[in-house]
Every structure is written in structure tokens, then in C-alpha cells.
Design a protein around this nucleic acid. Structure first.
Length: 463
RNA sequence: GCUCCGAUAGUGUAGUCCGGCCAAUCAUAUUGCCCUCUCGAGGCAAUGACCGGGGUUCGAAUCCCCGUCGGAGCACCA
């Protein structure tokens, strides 16, 4: 099988579907898959030189290593050779009709005057194309199909055209005569021994078009599956490489790994495992209708993956400071993980004031349980420590809340899918290393990204 | 306009090829209860779907026709 990306930027979430499915099939059935960059349009789908590696990097994040990697722009001579063979078989002709003129003839089911050229002339003109003797739009090579085919989309389609803009890759920047996707991909799929092709419904006519070429060469067409588009909920940003790219250029997004961007680099930075994405993608199946992927499906799998091994911490967002009275202990020691006491406890100095999330601040006269510390009761101007007997929670239904010391907590910027949130975390958070995962209790999971001076920057994963 | 394709709960999916065991599977979601020093995890329960209409048949999610809705192609893009 093959994954044939257009290298125009790092992958968004939807791109994960192809490698997820073919990679999973490969592993399950001892198969083979390659990545083949279909980079045959240096102009309107101009490749981004950084994208080749960015895509392979995304693939690695998803947990797959391709068995081989190809670039169509390395293989022009191969395509030329097959075109020459096709001309010998009277299966292709050079055509200098304008696009509009040919389109009219085609829609009427009429051949253009170039269709009947003899092979020598066609060869001569095609070699001229390869040599760059024509300019963009002057000459194309068409595959001779059935000019009266009932589906106009299949009639004598273009196999090669001239492009004046040099290819960005140094190895390919001398070429001016480029194959169209249907020709290039059709030839490559056979030569690379692809047995199964999965592609989008937008390419549903491709197999029918390429079948004409396969018939000329007497090749057997691979099995082909078309699937619909994937929409992902939870994002305001449109899932399109060019849109994301524009937003980055305009400064709306900080980069491909901005938490608000629906990209794989973003999910990675948020601490979501590639495996969770692959799982969700495989679960989508290969239906031809469009599907909506719920991010909650990815989150649910990811939570299962990380919950057990992720230590707990406190983070209070937008905290309200409250004075603490009544002689509480000097230090609180909640466990690192409630299901794994053997991992030990955190050491949180208490001090004489704490921060609570505004929604957790108790009304005057009511009590709350400060997790890992004990029970406090709200008075007119402070929280009065009333003891550490957990029975008030178990038997009297006192609410349990998280908290941080007002003085010794550390600032945290939590970057989320909808924007940044600031808060303060227990002091230990400042010591965490980059890439470590935490669960801020009652807030959600996050990945520690870096420390920026005093401030710790974390990326919100999910709840 | 011409040519293709599709439609099962909020979402995804199984079942459709070869009609009955489907008053429809599983996951996720939502809600409630239990448990828990988290609104996490775990346990239990509830909610919720075969696009519509005809036809064939003893019997239709499944086969046929019409309709509706949705998607795609008709490029010198991929």
C-alpha cells in the first residue's frame, strides 16, 4: 500500500487517517507500505521543501515507519519512458489545443485534430516537451481513451503538461514537462507493486481514467477503496493546510504546533499519543460517505493510555486569595497518584493564605475540604482550619476542592485549544521537566512544555 | 446540465454481498447511582438509530423501483 501525500506542509489531523489505516493493515497482515510524495506540480501545488521531513516526522509520531520513501520528482525519466511506450502503442498524442477549445470538443464528444497524428510526429513533439521547447499551455500529451465515453471526465485526459516554474527541489529543477497525478500515480502504483489503494472520493474517477493506461500496458489495476472526507469537531480553525498556513503567516496562530491548530504537531505538543489518534482513525473505517471525527474519541483513548502513569498536581486558575486561620499543618502531602501510593507524596507548604478557583470559594459558614490538607470553614474574612478528619467528607458530604498556597505557588500558563489560561500551581510544578505529563486535579491533563523564567508553560491535553 | 457515489442512535461503527438467529452490535457521548480526599480512574444503570414511499416475499436494515437529502467528478491541481 502507499501513502501519497502532497508535500505542502505538516499534516493536519485528517491526514493521519491514511497512515493510521494502511499502517495498521500492514502490521496486521505483514504487508508493506511506502510514502510516495506526489510532488509533480511545482506551480499551483508548489511543494514546501520543509514539508517532506515534517510529514515523515508526523508519521513517526503516529508510530509508523514506512518501508520505503519515494519522491515522484525523482522519477520523471521513468514516466517519460512509459509515455514513449504509450505513444508507440498509439495510446497518446500531443495536443496544442487550448484548454477551453478542447473542453468544448470533448463535451461534444468530438476528437480534436491532433488526435490522428502519426507516432513519429507525436514522439518528436513529446521530446520537444521534455526538452523544454514549449512554454506552459502550448502543448500537452493526452492519453487516448474514448472520446465518446459517457462520462466526460474520462475523455482523453492530459498526461503531461509544461510548467515554466522550476521545481523547488534542486534535483528536479531542470524539468519543465511534468506528468499529471493520474499518469504519474497510475504508473507508480504498478511499478511499486501496490496491491491496494485507498484514496478520497475526490479521486473516484482516477481509477477509471488510469484503467485506460493499464489496458494499454496490459497491467492489472490494484484494488481501490474510496473514502469520504473527515471533519473534526472542537476546532474553530478550518482543517486545511493552506488555511492553517495563512493563519500562521498572519500571526493568528503561533505555528504549526499552536494548541489551537488542528494539526498533528499541535496534538503532539499537547501530549496526545499518536496511538490514540491512530485508534480513532482506524475506528472511522473506510466508508465512502463523509464522517465527523469527535475529538472526544481521541481523548477517551488517550486518557486510558496516560491516566495510570500520570502524576497528580494542583493548579488553580484565576485564583481567589483567602486567608487561612485556625492553625493548619505547615505542609500538605497529597499522593502523587491516588491509585499508586508507592509513588509517594507531594510536599506542599501551606502558608497563611491559599488560592481557590472562584467557583470553589465556600459561602460564609460552609465548609470545604482542601484536598490533601483538611477541612476549613468560611468565616466573614478567612478560612478557619477545623481538622483533618476525612469523615466530614465521607459522612457529612463536605465538598472536596483543590487549592494552592498563595505565597509559595508558581505561575503557570496553560495553553488550551481555545486560548491561554493563567493560574498558579503547587511549587513542585516548577521542577518538572519538559515533556512530563501531569494531571491537574479537577482541571485536566497537561503536558509540561517549558519554563519561561518563573513561569511554567503547559499545554492542556484534555479533561 | 452530464456522470458517479452514499444514507444504521449526538458521533463513529457491526450487521447489508448470501433476507429469518436484528424488537439491531460495540465504542464514545449524555444523564443518574455506587465507589473514591479529583468533575480523573473503576463499577452499575438509563438515554438513543435502520432517510421517506412503494414493490417482491410467509418474512426486508438487508433485494428492486421512485423520491428526498448529502457528497464527488466533468482542470494543462493534488
Amino acid at each position: 500500500m502507499r501513502c501519497a501525500p502532497n508535500p505542502n506542509g505538516p499534516w493536519h489531523v485528517g491526514h493521519a487517517r491514511m497512515p493510521a489505516v494502511i499502517g495498521t493493515y500492514r502490521d496486521r497482515y505483514d504487508g508493506w507500505f511506502c510514502v510516495r510524495f506526489d510532488d509533480t506540480d511545482p506551480e499551483t501545488k508548489r511543494p514546501d521543501l520543509d514539508a517532506y521531513d515534517a510529514i515523515l516526522d508526523d508519521l513517526d509520531y503516529l508510530g509508523f515507519e514506512p518501508d520505503d520513501v519515494y519522491r515522484a520528482s525523482d522519477r520523471l525519466e521513468t514516466y517519460y519512458e512509459h509515455a514513449r511506450d504509450l505513444i508507440d502503442m498509439d495510446g497518446a498524442y500531443t495536443c496544442s489545443c487550448s484548454g477551453e477549445a478542447f473542453s468544448e470538443l470533448k463535451n461534444a464528444g468530438e476528437a480534436c485534430p491532433h488526435r490522428g497524428k502519426d507516432a513519429d510526429t507525436v514522439h518528436e513533439e513529446f521530446e520537444g516537451m521534455i526538452a523544454g521547447e514549449y512554454e506552459s499551455g502550448e502543448m500537452v500529451l493526452r492519453v487516448k481513451t474514448d472520446i465518446e465515453h459517457k462520462n466526460p471526465a474520462l475523455r482523453d485526459w492530459v498526461a503531461f503538461r509544461m510548467i515554466d516554474t522550476p521545481h523547488p527541489r534542486e534535483e528536479a529543477n531542470e524539468y519543465r514537462c511534468w506528468p499529471m497525478l493520474d499518469f504519474q500515480s497510475g504508473i507508480d502504483d504498478h511499478l511499486l507493486g501496490i496491491s491496494h489503494i485507498i484514496r478520497g472520493i475526490d479521486l473516484q474517477d482516477s481509477a477509471k481514467r488510469q484503467q485506460f493506461v493499464y489496458d494499454y500496458f496490459d497491467w492489472e489495476y490494484p484494488e481501490v477503496i474510496h473514502w469520504g472526507h473527515v471533519q473534526v469537531d472542537a476546532y474553530d480553525v478550518k482543517m486545511s493546510t493552506s488555511t492553517i498556513s495563512e493563519l500562521i503567516d498572519e500571526g493568528e496562530l503561533d505555528g504549526w504546533d499552536d494548541p489551537r491548530a488542528p494539526t498533528l504537531k499541535s496534538l503532539r505538543r499537547r501530549g496526545i499519543r499518536g496511538e490514540a489518534i491512530v485508534d480513532a482513525m482506524v475506528e472511522l473505517g473506510t466508508s465512502t460517505s463523509d464522517v465527523d471525527l469527535a475529538m472526544s474519541a481521541i481523548y477517551a483513548t488517550n486518557r486510558e493510555l496516560i491516566d495510570d502513569e500520570t502524576d497528580r498536581r494542583f493548579l488553580v486558575r484565576d485564583g481567589t486569595e483567602l486567608v487561612l486561620g485556625g492553625d493548619p499543618p505547615a505542609e500538605a502531602n497529597p499522593p502523587l497518584h491516588p491509585d499508586h501510593e508507592e509513588r509517594g507524596v507531594r510536599e506542599i507548604p501551606v502558608g497563611d493564605a491559599v488560592l481557590l478557583e472562584p467557583a470553589d470559594v465556600p459561602d460564609n459558614g460552609t465548609r470545604v475540604w482542601l484536598k490533601g490538607l483538611g477541612c476549613v470553614e468560611a468565616t466573614a474574612d478567612e478560612l478557619e482550619f477545623t481538622g483533618a478528619d476525612i469523615d466530614v467528607v465521607r459522612e457529612e458530604g463536605v465538598d472536596v476542592v483543590h487549592w494552592v498556597p498563595a505565597a509559595e505557588s508558581v505561575p503557570v500558563r496553560l495553553r488550551t485549544i481555545t486560548g491561554d489560561v493563567s493560574g498558579r500551581a503547587e511549587p513542585g510544578v516548577a521542577e518538572l521537566e519538559s515533556d512530563e505529563m501531569v494531571q491537574f486535579e479537577r482541571v485536566g491533563f497537561a503536558r509540561i512544555d517549558h519554563h519561561d523564567g518563573d513561569e511554567t508553560v503547559a499545554y492542556y491535553t484534555h479533561d
